[in-house]
Design a protein around this nucleic acid. Structure first.
Length: 295
DNA sequence: AAAGCATCCAACCGCCTGTTC
DNA sequence: AGAACAGGCGGTTGGATGCTT
């Protein structure tokens, strides 16, 4: 049995919002607050789907929205966050006050993906799935006509190639999954020592093939570690759970199977992330680390 | 000047998860 | 237990705009 649509679309407006609609929505939310999106349009006198109202409010009408003029700092942060988190726009947006996931997603697709690609080309490095998992988002290219005639149009902000090259660290593209369980098999172990602070990586099986791994596809393996974002107590790919599925202490962080066996890359990855968050690794606490992604 | 193409971005769509009943 | 609901997310679309020829 299929799901009913979120709302009846009969007689509802679609397309661009008018100033009058914006005013109605803003006025209603200022008076009654956010939420109850399904019933909101009717109460506010709007002929719009609730989801449409929510989107409009979240992306454009909220008073704290900052639009346009993405600074080079933000630019750089987006690139770095994307290299770590993949297309998790809401998470990335959460790190950029006033920015919305939609704006960042659009900005990435129109500007930054090209920039990153160009940088990768300039690096003259051989691309592989580990280092460049999100090669080029499928989006945005579908409708592009491949005339093969590339114009040198540089009207956008992605022109400053004179910026110092920064290390790019890539993770496999995270996916939404439900289960999270990291069995303690004799496979790779990633450990963080908060006293040093250092990360160490132990690999009991250089080939990276435990008995369990033989049964699982790489994607299924990844699914064991990367869970859906947004729920306290779950991991978003950076939280770690022990055998009893509890979030373990910072003094005993171990992660199995998911990470590549390239120790340097792993260490770089985490150091990179700490820099992103402007955190002092010596002050690191796994709970805040995990939580920081969700705030 | 205008036609054609490229690019941008607001908005829609479908799917997913958590909650409620 | 499972269906329905509500909210949230990422992918995609298509009209508007800009640029090139």
């Amino acid at each position: 049995m299929g799901r009913a649509p979120c709302c009846s679309k009969v007689g509802l407006h679609k397309g661009p919002w008018t100033p009058k609609e914006d005013a109605l929505l803003t006025k209603y939310i200022q008076a009654h607050g956010e939420g109850q999106w399904k019933s909101l349009p009717k109460k506010a006198g709007l002929l719009r789907c609730g989801k449409s109202c929510r989107l409009r409010w979240m992306n454009y009408l909220r008073p704290d929205i900052k639009r346009g003029n993405i600074s080079s700092d933000e630019d750089d942060l987006i690139i770095r966050m994307h290299s770590l988190l993949g297309n998790r726009w809401s998470l990335i947006a959460g790190r950029l006050p006033g920015r919305t996931d939609n704006e960042i997603k659009n900005y990435w697709n129109t500007h930054l993906s090209k920039k990153v690609k160009n940088q990768g080309t300039e690096d003259n490095s051989t691309p592989n799935m580990l280092e460049n998992p999100q090669e080029e988002p499928a989006s945005g290219n579908k409708k592009k006509k491949s005339s093969g005639k590339k114009k040198n149009k540089q009207k956008n902000k992605v022109t400053n190639n004179d910026e110092p090259q920064k290390t790019q660290v890539y993770l496999p593209k995270p996916i939404r999954v439900k289960a999270l369980y990291l069995p303690r098999t004799g496979s790779n172990t990633f450990t963080f020592d908060p006293n040093s602070p250092t990360f160490t990586f132990d690999s009991n099986s250089p080939s990276g093939s435990s008995s369990q791994e033989k049964e699982e596809s790489p994607m299924a393996k990844e699914s064991n570690v990367v869970s859906k974002m947004g729920n306290v107590g779950e991991s978003d790919g950076f939280g770690f759970f022990n055998q009893d599925h509890d979030l373990v202490n910072a003094s005993d962080i171990e992660c199995h199977s998911y990470f590549p066996t390239d120790h340097g890359t792993l260490q770089q990855l985490y150091e990179e992330y700490f820099q992103l968050l402007n955190m002092d690794p010596s002050q690191f606490d796994i709970n805040s680390f995990d939580q920081s992604l969700l705030e």
